[in-house]
Design a protein around this nucleic acid. Structure first.
Length: 444
DNA sequence: AGCACA
């Protein structure tokens, strides 16, 4: 096109257009106010507000040119200027014939949210933490994360726009709770808009993307470790499928870790339904069952790599079990079903605590020692080398995470009391139980 | 108080 700049950009009188340009609007004028303003003159088919550097301009598009002309004509001769919130608004024909792209995807409510994680350490926020945070509002179908100029971002897909909206309203501008983040990680604030997407395409379960509707989706080839069992993210963190049952192995077990101690520690995050302890590879392991995956995720995130006792003793390593419901046949000092009161109780034999036969295992062939947890054995190194590379580096003196404040998004029953820190038992005393077990109101 | 893109 040849230059046509013989005409000034703005002429005193624009040629008529269905679109009117408004200026000098109050700071945050709504679409509704624009419609109210134009309605007496015709049908407003489109608007755009908050235009310009000062966000004080707007456009109104009428169905017919005549309607736009009517509005301009009226205010041209009216003694009362057009006003919004008492402020005089100046009108003229726009130099365009229609409003284009009135709404960006970010303005249209949809079932997928675009989440920007702000903060120095935004990249350290795991997809699991995001999943946990957003799951408080409804089932999260899929999450993808990616790096853009805007920073570290995620797309979070809900079932519907209503659920997404409730999450957006509750979380936009808020920070991820401290206790969900590794201790050294700084504040991470969420900025949330709607995404134009309606269904994310997740090809693999990986450290960058998850499809929670399809747990059998293959894991990314690049994220499978030597055992072929677990997903490993770029940060080396294990990303095995989440479960309501945690497998705990205890490193540096200088002090006996009893079932009661485990119950106390894990009850801080929600009702513990069942615990089964067993010996494996010369160490002690335990399966801890929660009623739901979310609680297990919180407990795992909070406890992984931490020590039950001060001084680096009894360091916990947690992974997700493939069990979903433990079969506890008998209550004894190594296994317990806290949901039942009619399970036979077998008296513990305290004198040989670490060596006694395990009645549950012996009496129940289904849970013979070899069969009890075969899947967890794979990829579960007993030493911490290679395992805890992604785990928070915890000072030896700092056993449990500090601030276990209540989760602002979780239902009241899921509040997290401070688990407290235990000190090693004295030479002749049992571990001190300082913490009140979790007791939601409805729990029997 | 003067024309809009993510």
């Amino acid at each position: 096109m040849a230059s046509v700049s013989s005409q000034p950009q703005f002429r005193y009188t624009q040629p008529p257009s269905k679109v009117l340009h408004l200026r000098n609007l109050p700071w945050e004028c709504t679409e509704e106010e624009l419609i109210e303003l134009g309605k007496p003159f015709g049908k407003v088919v489109n608007t755009k507000c908050n235009v310009g550097a000062n966000r004080n301009q707007a456009f109104i598009e009428f169905a017919d040119l005549n309607q736009a002309i009517a509005m301009i004509s009226y205010y041209a001769s009216s003694s009362e200027p057009a006003q919004v919130r008492g402020k005089t608004v100046y009108l003229q024909y726009s130099n365009r014939q229609e409003i284009v792209n009135n709404k960006t995807a970010a303005d249209v409510a949809g079932n997928v949210l675009l989440v920007t994680i702000e903060g120095e350490d935004a990249r350290l926020v795991s997809i699991d933490v995001l999943h946990l945070v957003f799951s408080a509002f409804g089932f999260v179908h899929k999450i993808t994360t990616f790096e853009k100029t805007a920073g570290f971002q995620a797309l979070v897909q809900f079932s519907d726009a209503e659920t997404a909206t409730s999450a957006k309203n509750a979380l936009d501008g808020r920070s991820i709770p401290r206790y969900l983040l590794p201790e050294h990680v700084g504040s991470c604030t969420l900025r949330i808009t709607y995404s134009g997407h309606t269904d994310l395409s997740v090809k693999f379960q990986s450290h960058r993307s998850r499809d929670y509707t399809n747990p059998y989706l293959p894991v990314a080839p690049s994220a499978i470790d030597g055992s072929g069992q677990f997903v490993v993210g770029l940060d080396g963190k294990k990303l095995e499928p989440e479960s309501n049952v945690l497998l705990a192995s205890i490193e540096n077990m200088q002090y006996a870790v009893t079932l009661d101690v485990l119950y106390m520690v894990f009850s801080s995050f929600g009702p513990v339904q069942k615990i089964a302890m067993f010996d494996k590879n010369g160490g002690v392991q335990a399966l801890i069952q929660y009623p739901d995956v979310q609680t297990a995720v919180v407990a795992k995130e909070a406890l992984e790599g931490h020590c039950i006792y001060d001084g680096g003793f009894c360091k916990l390593h947690l992974s997700y079990s493939r069990h979903t419901d433990l079969s506890i046949k008998v209550n004894n000092d190594r296994s317990r079903d806290y949901t039942l009161s009619n399970v036979p109780m077998v008296n513990a034999q305290p004198s040989i605590l670490g060596q006694q036969p395990v009645p549950m295992m012996a009496s129940n062939p289904q849970y013979s020692g070899a069969q009890f947890a075969p899947t967890e054995q794979v990829g579960m190194p007993q030493n911490s080398a290679g395992w805890a590379t992604g785990a928070p580096q915890v000072p030896q003196s700092m056993a449990m995470p500090m601030a276990m404040h209540s989760h602002p998004y979780m239902p009241p029953g899921a509040m997290l009391p401070h688990p407290g820190m235990r000190h090693p038992p004295g030479q002749n005393g049992p571990p001190q139980a300082t913490m009140a077990p979790y007791r939601p109101d409805g729990m029997q």
